[in-house]
Design a protein around this nucleic acid. Sequence first.
RNA 1: GCCGGUGUAGCUCAAUGGCAGAGCAGGGCUCUCAUAAGGCUCGUGUGAAGGUUCAAUUCCUUCCAUCGGCACCA
Length: 499
Amino acid sequence: MPLKQKNFYVSTALPYVNSAPHIGFALEIIQADVIARNHRFLGEEVFFLTGTDENSLKNVKAAQEQGISVKNFVDKNAKKFYELKEILNLSFDDFIKTSEERHKNGAEKFWRACKKDIYKKAYKGLYCVGCEAFYKENELINGLCPEHNIRPELIEEENYFFTLSKYQKRLKKIIQEDEVEIIPKTRKNEILSFINSGLEDFCISRDIKRSQGWGVPVPGDSTQIQWTWFDALSNYINAPGYADDNKKFQKLWQKNENKLHIIGKGVLRFHAVYWLSMLLSANLSLPKRIFAHGYLTVNNEKMSKSLRNVVSPFELVEKYGTDPVRYFLLREIPPTKDGDFTYEKFENRYNSDMASGLGNLVARIIKMAIGLNSKFQIQTKSLSPEIQARASKIYENRKKFLEEFKFNDSLKSIWDLIGFCDRYIEKEKPWQKNEKQKNTIKNLLYLLFNIANLIQPFLPETAEKIFKQLGIKPEKITGKLNKILNFKIKEAKPLFPKL
RNA sequence: GCCGGUGUAGCUCAAUGGCAGAGCAGGGCUCUCAUAAGGCUCGUGUGAAGGUUCAAUUCCUUCCAUCGGCACCA
């Protein structure tokens, strides 16, 4: 009887579609992709989910500005997010749009499941028409909205509230004891101090007129729609079939011990406080880990439309290719801290690590090997034990680092192996004809095979190209070390031409 | 204001209560299999002031700088 396959679930946050994808979201979805690919190599059954959040009021406004229907607007923009799959070589298994029926059905079912913790209350607040948001007295500047410099109106309406206060104690325990682990620790501490400051019930619906009818209705009340975050968070269970496929839902969510949310630091509270409490309320299984990444700056400035410094992943990939973009974001940006993008930094990484590093190493090994023979059979027992140990050490590092989401350290450790190969070549001079030449080249081919293996989750396209040049049959590519390898070397164009 | 993080070579970051390291960029030398690629080589720099200690970059105090969190904001 075959062993039962372990399940693994990973999601990104759902980006708003009111503007085009930028490299900040590219970072998040690439991180998730690496984790997903790595778990597939570990032999687990992976469900990798992403999608788009389309029920925001911002969309209604943006659609009106463009003079098209809201549905047309969100469909048009969501398509751009889906296209990231192609250009960034992403391996997600499902893409959920919160305007889809399956999501709305799920969100309504989820609302009913939380019913015991939902109550109606008059809400009074200072409402800025420009922002379409409520402000607190102390957030105003001279009594005016800080964005628009206008005096907010005092609005009173009945809304639904969620009894977050009720979950304060349980939530504190869950987070403190890592029943749900928040990564990194500093974010965990922030959330704990937020919880300790006292949790207040929060408003989870809007008047339907103010939302112009766009959104997920509140079950049983035609005057209200669900607040965007309340419906959007339920996407994580709706995609795996919460409302329409119980068998799938049980397998992927309820009985899955290893569920991971990858999110940006700015939305941690929604996930670590609201979402967990909502799941507790509905009596559903909790995620295992929440990983919060940092943000990208451009020239050390916040990316924003008004600064006109938003970098498009489409343009970057068009100019440099998919794997250089993946490499830069994973290698240069510290996983849990803010990192900076500039074209100069990007091109430096490209030239030194990709062109002169990996690309050049592949070219020189292939050329030397082919000068000797095109076919090689390598048995690991005939290779240098020191070299084998060195390679297997990098697999251990990758495993360890990826468990801690240290994409940068993991790549660094692989690139150390590339550096070792260059020094090994220099030392052994395998271009000279002598009795140890063939053996040196076998060791190098073995190392190159392992480098390709190691970079697979990060740079899948490059790994594939290297395997092709080595003539390794696809069925031999298991992500693990093999005892016997047959190579049939082919020359090819440079992987990364120098800029 | 309150809470927390960080401050190390031009840049990005390591490290340990005991002579402070790596990558990139830059200078010099050099091999030639390779994408003018590779290798070797060159760096007294721990924000400031005190304190504990035989010894502090590491522990403590204060200060300065900077970043983040503090309720509906990627």
